[in-house]
Design a protein around this nucleic acid. Structure first.
Length: 937
DNA sequence: GACATCACG
DNA sequence: GACGTACGTGATGTCC
């Protein structure tokens, strides 16, 4: 490597690469490479900026040395100082991520030194180099407008805002901060920075900070003499927040003494290598820039083959695949040599669609059978790993491995570097499943994209998001069904018994379909206006959920077993009594038989219902009958016990994992159209709590020895969101003052002073409050409160009279749904309402759902944001996040760390809407702890 | 596999 | 003027 000694008279240029990238990304529309759709806008802008920069470097002021400096990794020493550092940063846009490595390549193509270092921000490298250059007697120009770099100005160091072509010297810094460069960090430490989440001193901005620093000379002197400050508020703030201010200084202070793996001498300006640069520009298919650069270098512009332009209506009719599916064309990878070739292809591409085949559906139990990969439409492979010999018709097929498979561990060892490589995107359909399979084998798959989640972000409310649905709908292709391969019922086999040839066709096709869906959906996210939803609420949640599911929660089998026995005994007693009263034996669990006994044999009042012609025997009906007869009440008791036993005390025992001794639920991220999660196998979001008897089931959910369970739940989050979106000042004020919201509603509606409030009036108001969230109707409220319909309607009328904003919100929401076919949450999540203009009763359903969705959905978005931020926030604590129940998060934590965990988790939850949305109503989180889930609540 | 029922927020 | 109706889920047992 050639070196150019740096010394007196030399001039170093340091380019802030990340700033270039983001400027380029936001300045240009989302361009894609014509030939394959690779997002390329930021790279194009970046190259244009570099080119313009190189062009301008003439004359006596030209640099002798230059480097472009990048950030690397997301965790720096500042995160160790302060876990919330940059915690508010939104995730990198999905279409930008694959472009990051290309900007490095671009820099090298221009033959400019390209530097980054793990664990440090670009700013620290810039600081270190600037100091070295200054000490060596040279000049430095930092090409950036980032105010965090202004502390470096002076003594031959200046900044240059490349966009405005404006130099910033000491005077410029003074203009910005009111102090010289040497005191910039003091001012920043006081003023804080909301963008990087540097706390600073509350209530003190740059102006006040400069005033104080100028008066006291330095931050240290100011803090030591804080008692002397005349303004009481200011004095108190500085004294109380001393530690926080000192921490802030550490955060903003750049490290100018880093260990670097290179020296200034390595950064000498070099002429571009014409061939290298032109071939890179051609590869990116930058026609204009290629031509311009070629002209300047006196070379011929490289040919860029014109790919057929996408038809204008491609987005509207995306059902035609250019390349036909051919299940016979897929490769079966049987040895390391073949797999290595795929690894090379993946590295060249920078992305790969991945799918795993397993012996079942429980990711915590199943074995890995094979892996499929796809790098471009039609080009996919399947790697069989643990298929057994003996065909599917051989019921007693041997447990020997089939021939022609590479050892499982060999395949994983080859794939691990790819699956964990930051610069290679792993694409999946329901990637959480595959990520968990890999995680159990020590592979942490990242970064990922997920076609199921893309579909959910774009199409929630329109259709399902399973692969078969998406393939038929958007690729006009019916995937090979799995049924014929596995069979059904008792004779069904697991995938490891499927002949490898059949497996290749089926499994590789899944990866092929996934890749095609990804290529189709990727540009559509932007067009549908849901890139932010996908990037900030969907994609980053995947690893969080995967981890929670893998943690699981300890459930005490003995407790459940004892309860099951007790329930069985009670049920037997009740059953005997019921048969006695009925005068005959029958199946109490059969609504049909029960209906006939009650209404035909015993002649109670009540009609048939439903298309089936069977009597309705729901709890509400039995409750009414119970006032006249003994039998219905006994059936209700029996049903409660039956439910608790079968669904909870029995079934939960079967879900205790033999290996971990814990219960591992699966969250379905696309389970609810509103943005809520769903929990399955088992559902841990509907563990009983409302009845005393059922609540005791929560006693079986326990922490490990020495730990406690911690439950944090949002207080009235949906009503708070309603108050915000509908702009109800009275409610907002009530929440601000911490009042009892249902009592206040009651007081407003029924003109009862708060001090004279009765539980019954409050209960009615509470029902109305909830009704409003659900898209209230007189009928529904009447049924809920068991009052005449006219009376219920009177309540509603009064409510709307008192809170006219609610009616306005409802009308506007329905009108919006009719106009756009969807409603949305405060965070931009879209929920489609295809039936909103239907005729008949369906319109009523759609209307109420449309009214409810933005409220329920915004609450769901808020807790998602909290969950996404939680792992980093509690990383320094021994706490584990285990469960989510819509407005509640459950943690397991050693006793010693309980207080810290509550404080940290509560802060994350209460500030989860920031900075994307500013709610007029503060969010409040209640916390509870205990030796089981019942106590913690 | 549809339906009724009931557990949760 | 009548229609029907609270919002969002998942698991279980019965019955065809």
């Amino acid at each position: 490597m050639t070196t150019t000694p740096f010394g007196t008279g030399c001039h170093l240029h340091l380019i802030d690469g990340s700033a270039f990238i983001f400027r380029a990304y936001h300045a240009l529309p989302p361009l894609t490479r014509k030939s394959d759709g690779l997002p390329i806008g930021a790279v194009a802008g970046f190259c244009n900026m570099l080119h313009r920069y190189v062009e301008g470097n003439t004359g006596p002021d030209a640099p002798t040395h230059v480097a472009v400096i990048f950030d690397k990794g997301s965790h720096t020493f500042r995160n160790d100082l302060y876990d919330q550092y940059k915690a508010n940063r939104e995730a990198m846009p999905e279409d930008l991520r694959p472009q990051i490595p290309l900007t490095r390549t671009a820099t090298e193509a221009f033959n400019i030194a390209c530097k980054e270092q793990e664990g440090f921000e670009a700013d620290d490298i810039i600081a270190t180099l600037a100091c070295q250059a200054r000490d060596a007697g040279g000049r430095v120009t930092i090409i950036s407008s980032d105010k965090d770099l202004m502390q470096l100005v002076g003594g031959g160091v200046e900044m240059l805002d490349a966009m405005k072509n404006k130099r910033i010297d000491s005077d410029g810094v003074f203009e910005k901060f009111g102090v010289g460069p040497d005191r910039v960090v003091d001012v920043q430490a006081l003023a804080g920075d909301s963008v990087d989440n540097v706390p600073g001193a509350p209530g003190i901005g740059i102006k006040t900070a400069a005033l104080l620093i100028n008066e006291y000379g330095s931050l240290e002197n100011l803090l030591d003499r804080a008692e002397e400050i005349k303004q009481p508020k200011r004095r108190q703030t500085l004294i109380e927040n001393r530690a926080q201010i000192e921490l802030s200084k550490q955060l903003v202070q750049l490290d100018n003494n880093m260990e670097l793996g290179f020296t200034l001498d390595d950064l000498g300006v070099r002429d571009p290598n014409a061939d290298q640069l032109l071939s890179f520009l051609a590869e990116m298919e930058f026609r204009t820039l290629s031509k311009r650069v070629a002209d300047q270098l006196g070379k011929e512009a490289p040919a860029i083959v014109d790919a057929p332009a996408q038809s204008a209506d491609a987005a509207e009719a995306p059902t035609v695949a250019d390349i036909p599916f051919d299940s016979g064309s897929y490769e079966c990878v049987r040895d390391a040599e073949a797999l290595k070739k795929w690894v090379t292809q993946i590295r060249e591409r920078g992305w790969v669609a991945v799918d795993t085949e397993t012996t079942g559906f429980d990711e915590m139990v199943v074995d890995l059978v094979g892996i499929s990969l796809c790098v471009e439409p039609g080009r996919a492979c399947y790697i069989p790993l643990t298929h057994k010999s003996g065909g599917s018709d051989d019921l007693f097929g041997s447990d020997d491995l089939a021939d022609g498979q590479m050892p499982l561990q060999d395949a994983l060892d080859l794939l691990k570097p790819v699956l964990e490589d930051d610069s290679i995107l792993k694409i999946g359909q329901n990637m959480k499943y595959d990520a968990k399979i890999f995680a159990r084998r020590g592979i942490d798959v990242a970064p990922i994209d997920d076609t199921m989640l893309m579909s959910y972000a774009m199409h929630a409310g329109q259709h399902g998001h399973g692969m078969d649905t998406l393939s038929e709908r958007y690729l006009n292709h019916t995937p090979i069904p799995i049924k014929p391969l596995l069979g059904t019922g008792k004779s069904a086999i697991t995938f490891d018994r499927v002949p490898i040839d059949d497996a290749v066709a089926y499994a590789a096709e899944d990866a092929d379909i996934t890749l095609r869906l990804w290529q189709l959906f990727k540009p559509q996210l932007h067009q549908a206006g849901v890139t932010t939803v996908y990037e900030t609420l969907e994609r980053p949640l995947v690893p969080v959920l995967a981890r929670m599911e893998r943690e699981g929660i300890k459930v005490d089998r003995d407790t459940l077993s004892r309860m099951s026995n007790a329930f069985a005994q009670k049920m037997a007693g009740l059953e005997a009594e019921i048969h006695e009263l009925a005068g005959q034996s029958f199946n109490v669990g059969s609504p049909k038989q029960l209906g006939e006994i009650l209404f035909d044999k015993l002649g109670m009042e009540g009609g048939k219902k439903g298309k089936t012609g069977a009597y309705a025997t729901g709890a509400d009906i039995l409750e009414d009958l119970a006032t006249e007869h003994a039998l219905p009440g006994l059936v209700l008791d029996w049903r409660q016990l039956s439910k608790l036993k079968s669904t909870y005390t029995d079934a939960l025992q079967d879900h205790i994992n033999a290996e971990t001794g814990r219960v591992h639920t699966s969250y379905v991220q696309t389970g609810a159209n509103t943005g809520r999660l769903a929990s399955t196998d088992p559902n841990l979001q509907n563990i009983p709590i409302r009845s005393e008897e059922g609540r005791r089931i929560r006693e079986a959910f326990v922490p490990e020895e020495g730990n406690v369970l911690l439950a944090l739940d949002y207080s009235q989050i949906e009503l708070r969101i309603l108050a915000h979106v509908a702009g109800i000042d009275t409610l907002k004020q009530a929440f601000a003052e911490g009042q009892d919201i249902h009592a206040l509603t009651a007081s407003e509606m029924f003109n009862v002073p708060l001090e004279e409030m009765t539980p019954d009036i409050r209960r009615q108001a509470k029902a109305i409050n909830f009704g409003v969230i659900y898209g209230i109707s007189g009928f529904g409220l009447a049924r809920n409160l068991r009052i005449p319909r006219a009376e219920a309607q009177g309540f509603i009328d009064r409510y709307f009279e008192r809170f006219p904003g609610i009616r306005r919100y409802m009308d506007e929401t329905v009108a919006f749904a009719k106009e756009h076919g969807h409603v949305q949450t405060l965070f931009g999540r879209k929920i489609h309402t295809p039936e909103i203009s239907a005729k008949g009763p369906r319109a009523g359903f759609a209307k109420r759902a449309a009214i409810n969705a933005p409220i329920q959905g915004t609450a769901a978005d808020v807790i998602r944001r909290a969950m996404i931020r939680m792992p980093a926030a509690i990383a320094h604590l021994p706490a584990r996040m285990l469960l989510q129940v819509h407005d509640e998060l459950l943690f397991e934590v050693p006793e010693a760390a309980v207080e810290d965990t509550i404080e940290t988790a509560r802060r994350v939850m209460e500030t989860a809407a920031d900075p994307a949305v500013h709610l007029d109503v503060k969010l409040v989180v209640d916390a509870g702890r205990g030796q089981n889930w019942a106590e913690a609540h």
